[in-house]
Design a protein around this nucleic acid. Structure first.
Length: 424
RNA sequence: GUGGCUAUAGCUCAAUGGUAGAGCACCUGGUUGUGGCCCAGGAGGCUACGGGUUCGAGCCCCGUUAGCCACCCCA
């Protein structure tokens, strides 16, 4: 590779060519799903006050402590590129007084997020997510509605073999007691725990549950499980949610080892995993309930639940499953010209075709007809429209069907109609 | 933040320490105004960058940068 003056910033990607087809497919189906489920689009700024994320996501989390792109702007304000969506959406909810909307409020958004981590398959410093939130309702039917939207979208995209993992991380009433029980259990084995797990035991005991350490994993079998230590309210919530998921025919498995990194989750947590060749990052959707979050951020107490789903990972999964997105629009007509006078007519005609809603391209650069037809062929156009001196004097164009090789002369006023009719 | 692997043409990759190549893609020609296939030709490289060893480095050594994969963590 030649010496590059500039190259991509680490962990960023250019999305081009065929990849655009996958992205377009995902976003179009997502829009469609959101319309079906009645989610309203919201867009929030990429920049927020850094403290919003510290307060919202949690000071103990890696996302905030180690991974945020954070900087002082020219006014001296401490800003951060958003590392996740929820905190910003909650800020917008509070600031715009959205509590006056009849609950539940169903919102969705999409866009880039930034986390300064080492990249690997399915993990980038800038990545995009689809993000859904349902606010103002504690009914577990809302949890099922949210998960149902994700499940619908993935099915609609044609993905198969997905697994929905479900767990509950309790609430302030039952979480501390469980964490204590779990800590007590692992304390017995502290001397044999690997370094990483010793650290987890001190800093975030729940994380031991999803450890990958071989020496620790056998110990998990006898470890206390959260579902056995939920308070009546949380246990009831989980039970109802299971009923409602079953009513939607969404298969799931209770996963005692499922915990999530963000501080704000209460009760329901879930992940959807894609099977096979995605590498270690196989979670394409993850989220949960956060009933205390809005209050933490200065709003009136409002329950909520949401999830994020990584678009890059969805695209990787589509490719791994050999799912071909629909072809993007190809031109119906490609206009070729010979000579300056014909070029002006070609420009005029191309504009007319587009005005008639016919996808059209023309060639540039005064090249040989051979070269122009080669371009026409490559553009996947169905018709080549040829304008030369000869046609110009007779006020016709030659329309060549690039599939059948048939061609005919067509007078200027009939060109549009001819193209449209032939297409049908 | 930690570890492993890698870096040659736009892409995928060759080249015992001894003259940097192929396929694909691109451009031109084989028709004076007719595409895909075929044929001929062309353009495209300070072998990521900076040092070192050597008579001689794409190849060996060191550093930097970047990429990939995994850990941590997460979508």
């Amino acid at each position: 590779m030649a010496k590059l003056l500039y190259q991509r910033v680490t962990g960023m990607q250019d999305v081009l060519g065929d990849d655009q087809r996958y992205w377009r497919f995902v976003l179009e189906r997502a829009r469609h799903t959101m319309d079906l489920f009645g989610f309203e689009r919201i867009d929030t700024p990429i920049l927020e006050q850094a403290t919003l994320f510290k307060r919202g996501v949690g000071r103990g989390t890696d996302i905030v402590e180690k991974e945020m792109y954070i900087f002082e702007d020219r006014d001296g304000d401490l800003l951060a590129l958003r590392p996740e969506f929820t905190a910003g959406v909650m800020r917008a909810y509070i600031q715009n007084g959205l509590h006056t909307q009849p609950p539940p409020l169903k919102l969705w958004t999409t866009g880039p997020l930034f986390r300064h981590e080492r990249n690997q398959k399915g993990r980038y410093r800038q990545h995009s997510q689809l993000n859904l939130e349902i606010l103002g309702e504690t009914d577990p039917a809302v949890d099922a509605e949210l998960i149902g939207a994700a499940w619908f979208l993935f099915s609609d995209l044609g993905l198969t073999g997905l697994k929905l993992h479900l767990n509950s991380t309790g609430c302030p009433a039952c979480k501390p007691a469980y964490v204590q029980k779990l800590t007590d259990y692992f304390r017995q084995y502290e001397s044999i725990l690997p370094e990483d797990d010793k650290r987890r035991l001190r800093q975030n005991p729940l994380r031991i549950l999803d450890t990958k350490e071989e020496t620790t994993r056998p110990l998990l079998d006898d470890a206390p499980q959260f579902v056995d230590h939920l308070c009546a309210d949380c246990a009831n919530h989980l039970g109802k949610l299971r009923t409602y998921l079953e009513a939607r025919r969404i298969p799931y498995q209770i996963d005692h080892k499922l915990v999530r990194g963000l501080d704000y989750y209460t009760k329901t947590v879930f992940e959807i995993k894609a099977p096979g060749s995605l590498g270690a990052q196989d979670v394409i959707c993850g989220g949960g309930r956060y009933d205390g979050l809005i209050e933490t951020l200065g709003g009136r107490p409002t329950p909520g639940i949401g999830f994020g789903s990584g678009i890059e990972r969805i695209v990787l999964t589509l490719k791994a499953q050999n799912i071909e997105p629909p072809r993007t629009v190809t031109p119906l007509a490609f206009v070729a010209y010979l000579g300056e006078a014909a070029k002006v007519e070609a420009i005029r005609l191309t504009a007319q075709l587009r005005d008639a809603d016919i996808p059209a391209q023309m060639s540039f650069g005064d090249r040989s007809l051979k070269a122009q037809l080669k371009s026409a062929n490559r553009s996947r156009a169905k018709f080549a429209i040829i304008i030369g001196e000869e046609e110009l004097t007779r006020e016709v164009v030659t329309i060549r069907n690039l599939e059948t090789k048939e061609q005919q002369d067509v007078p200027f006023p009939e060109i549009i109609r001819k193209i449209v009719n032939n297409e049908e």
